[in-house]
């Protein structure tokens, strides 16, 4: 047990504001049955790390509801396990990963943990990073901080010693830096830096555009096979939805479909979350439909992102474009193309 992990869920992604009105960025739904934070948490447990601090901003009810005590990730332990750590940061205060102002609120997490190294990551970087392998590379490099990169692109995951991290937290104001990411980007002296080259699935969800495109990219078999590795499962909060029911007359093609849905309409190139209802003669193409949405009969949806609990009344026509999908806010009701 060499590593403890920090997920900095205080980071706000301004481009994802539409989906983070009522939740933290870390709990934005992704890939049908997951929330963004599931990927970081799963990488952590798949790397055998059992001490995890989730640093959350004030708007964290949905995040707390989602991860609870970490049972779905096998992190509800008597020793170590998952610590949900609310900070004084407000949504919007932090834009970079590993913000010292947030970490400072819970220095005791670091004091108590027995692991000599810490991985600092965020919820909006999705990959299958193996932190143990990354730690080995970090130790071999002799550097103070190692960042993960793929094809030259920074993955916003960092490993450093706990001792160094605590020192940085204590001195960040006088050093005029705000976060671990900040220090790495500025290559601040006297620290030494190295890079860990990762190959495999990696995306940064940092705008509505990347959210939509990376979601849709998962419909490509090569891509989803890279993300969903049988030996490294992605864990999420367990729901007790029954299998999805494909009704008579339905046609669902080239889509990712979670459990609990009742499908009667025509769906293609779309992502359907858990417990979605698609009515008769409704046509969906290139849509992302989140949990518990109801699309009534005879609707026509093209390039639509419907957030959780949206109801689209019968006969509605909503057409967005690849560049500008129609985004419908959580819990709203839409009739004939008009958002109520």
């Amino acid at each position: 047990m060499r590593l403890a992990a920090v997920i900095d869920a205080t980071v706000t992604i301004p481009g994802l504001k539409e989906l983070a009105m009522y939740r933290s960025s870390a709990s934005i739904p992704f890939a049908g049955r997951y929330r963004l934070i599931d990927f970081a948490l799963s990488n952590i447990v798949n790397s055998d790390i059992s001490s995890v601090g989730v640093f959350a901003s004030q708007q964290s009810v949905s995040l707390m509801d989602h991860i609870g005590k970490g049972k779905s990730w096998d992190l509800d332990r008597r020793r170590n396990g998952l610590y949900f750590l609310p900070t004084s940061q407000r949504e919007g205060d932090q834009l970079s990963v590993g913000s010292f102002a947030a970490l400072e609120d819970h220095l005791s997490f670091f004091k108590k943990s027995t692991q000599p190294y810490v991985v600092v990551t965020s919820a909006f970087s999705i990959s299958q990073l193996d932190y143990n392998d990354m730690l080995d590379a970090h130790l071999a490099s002799g550097a103070d901080i190692t960042e993960a990169v793929r094809d030259g692109e920074c993955m916003k995951s960092y490993i450093l010693s706990k001792e160094l991290l605590m020192e940085m937290i204590k001195s960040f104001r006088e050093n005029r830096v705000v976060s671990v990411e900040d220090i790495v980007n500025l290559k601040r002296k006297p620290y030494t830096f190295s890079q860990y080259q990762y190959e495999g699935y990696f995306v940064l969800i940092n705008s509505m555009e990347s959210y939509f495109n990376e979601s849709m990219a998962l419909l490509n078999e090569v891509t989803w096979r890279q993300l969903f590795l049988p030996e490294k499962p992605i864990y999420t909060k367990v729901k007790d939805e029954p299998p999805t029911k494909y009704m008579k007359g339905s046609s669902v093609k080239r889509s990712l479909v979670a459990n609990g849905s009742l499908l009667e309409g025509q769906v293609s190139d779309s992502i359907l979350s858990r417990a979605v209802e698609i009515g008769r003669n409704s046509k969906l193409e290139n849509c992302i439909i989140m949990q518990k949405c109801v699309i009534e009969d005879n609707c026509d949806l093209l390039y639509v992102v419907a957030d959780k609990d949206v109801r689209i009344k019968a006969g509605s026509v909503l057409h967005g474009t690849k560049e500008k999908p129609v985004i419908i806010r959580k819990g709203s009701e839409v009739s004939e193309g008009e958002v109520l």
């Binding site: 890939a31 049908g32 049955r33 779905s72 078999e221 989803w224 969903f228 499962p233 992605i234 864990y235 999420t236 367990v238 999805t244 494909y246 008579k248 007359g249 339905s250 046609s251 669902v252 093609k253 080239r254 889509s255 990712l256 479909v257 979670a258 459990n259 293609s268 992502i271 359907l272």
Partner: peptide, 14 residues
């Protein structure tokens, strides 16, 4: 803990 079901362009489910 399994990923969502994948239905491809060649499938027909009734």
């Amino acid at each position: 803990q399994l990923p969502p079901q994948v239905v491809t362009s060649t499938c027909e489910i009734q």
